Amino acid sequence: MSSLLPKPQMRGLLARRLRFHAVGAFVFCFGSALIYKFGVAEPRKRAYTEYYKNRDPIADFEALREAGVFESVRPKGK
C-alpha cells in the first residue's frame, strides 16, 4: 500500500509568503540604512568638520597664488 502525500496549502499561501518577505525586506532595508549612516555618513561628517576646523583659506589662497594657478592675480613681489 502506498502512503498518501499531504495536500499542499493553497489558500492564503500568497498572503503568508508576502507577509514573511515584507518583514524581511523591512529589516534588510532598515539594517542597510543604519550601516550606511554609521559606516559612511557619520565618519564623512566628522572628516569634513575636522577639515574645516583646521583649514586656513587665506593660506590656501596664498599658496595657490604663489604657484601661479590664478591668471588674474600676480604673485607677491612681481
Rank of each mutant, 00 (worst) to 15 (best):
F26G: 14
P57F: 13
E50A: 14
G24V: 07
E66T: 04
I35A: 10
L14G: 11
Y48K: 06
G12V: 03
A41S: 14
G24F: 06
M1S: 15
I58K: 10
E50H: 14
V69M: 04
A33Q: 09
V73K: 05
M10G: 04
P57L: 04
Y51A: 05
H21P: 11
F70D: 00
L13Y: 10
G68Y: 00
F61D: 03
K45A: 05
P75L: 06
L4C: 13
R19H: 08
Y36M: 06
S2K: 12
R11W: 09
M10A: 10
E71P: 01
R16Y: 11
R74F: 00
L4A: 14
F28C: 13
A59H: 05
G24S: 00
L14Q: 15
E71F: 05
L64M: 10
L34S: 02
A59Y: 02
C29T: 14
Y51R: 14
I58W: 09
F30W: 05
P75E: 02
F20K: 09
F61G: 02
G12E: 07
G31P: 01
R65E: 00
A59I: 07
Y36W: 03
R74L: 10
V27E: 04
F28Q: 01
R17W: 08
R11T: 12
V40I: 09
R44E: 05
G12A: 04
K45L: 11
K53S: 15
K78S: 13
L4Y: 14
G68Q: 02
A47E: 12
S32K: 02
K45I: 06
F30Q: 11
D60M: 07
R16P: 01
A67D: 08
R55T: 08
F30A: 09
A22T: 09
T49M: 15
R55A: 13
A47K: 09
I58P: 00
Y52A: 11
R16I: 08
F70T: 04
